[in-house]
Design a protein around this nucleic acid. Structure first.
Lengths: 153, 153
DNA sequence: CCCATATTGACATCATGCTGTCAATATGGG
DNA sequence: CCCATATTGACAGCATGATGTCAATATGGG
């Protein structure tokens, strides 16, 4: 029955989400990071060009204000800094500080072995298929007919 | 690369989790329910025997206190009631009220078509495969070698 | 039977993410 | 150029879920 299958997947998504957050917290706790801060830090580090908070929020699928709060915390801790945006006076750009870059590298070095252990023995195709299915569900929930990874709209 | 694939799946899990919560909230909002309350309500309704809060929390993979808070809210709204537990004076059993049962049925009637639309055209085997993969990841994160749906430990 | 240990609920506190409102700033049509 | 609209950050408030501590209660070894 399709309904039972999708319901199971939904409940499993809730459970896994909680476990992933807990695992991420534990992985970077002694670096002074949390899952949420790490995720924002990663978004800033990964972008080829500096982005404003609102753009980061859209990329991550979170609300603008939630990301803003985390970004403010990161700035207070000297992990990111805000730079003027020549194209928009209000929307300052988020940049990594030296400390922020070092933290991101330290976190990435831990995430590698952790991710390898987590996915050890699982076929990459199965992981990718699951990712595709989750993305398909999310696209439907967002009302987006076809979803892709946009970087520069 | 396995690491990139698993990282993508993790990020997609975060995004889907957020969308599912928002969709669930919208689906049952006018019933006076939220995703969190609905989930606890469902756990109570689905169990063949009345369960204490701590047991429900373990089943859902949430913290005991979080479920307790939601259960207290549901009791204040007349959706569940607490009954004495003959086996444990402190751990009262959670039961649905008449109103609670009606609410659960109303929510279930909405969830059916919604779930059908969400999974329309997706092969059931693909959904089940994704569920199995998520569960495998969660089992690893929990340190549980093999995981199954237990109801009565 | 007695005591060490575990479980449970009550209470308080914190982290995370959402929404609403407002003013400042961009953007585009006229 | 001017004004309607959209975007953005600041600020406040709420929902959800985790944690920590404490006392009450079960449970099991001795």
């Amino acid at each position: 029955m399709a309904r039972a299958a999708i319901t199971e997947l939904i409940l499993e998504t809730f459970r896994l989400n909680g476990r992933l957050l807990a695992a991420g917290d534990a992985l970077v706790r002694d670096l002074g990071l949390t899952s949420a801060r790490w995720q924002v830090l990663g978004a800033v580090a990964m972008s080829r060009v500096p982005l404003p908070v609102s753009h980061i929020a859209r990329t991550m699928g979170l609300s603008r204000q939630g990301v803003q709060r985390v970004a403010d915390e990161l700035e207070a801790r000297g992990i990111v800094r805000f730079a003027p945006n020549p194209h928009h006076r209000r929307a300052r750009l988020v940049l990594l500080t030296e400390r922020g870059r070092a933290l991101h590298e330290a976190a990435a070095e831990r995430q590698g072995p952790w991710a390898a252990a987590l996915s050890d023995g699982l076929p990459v195709e199965a992981v990718e298929a699951a990712t595709g299915l989750l993305r398909a569900l999310r696209d439907r929930l967002e009302g987006t007919p076809a979803g892709g990874d946009d970087d520069e709209p």
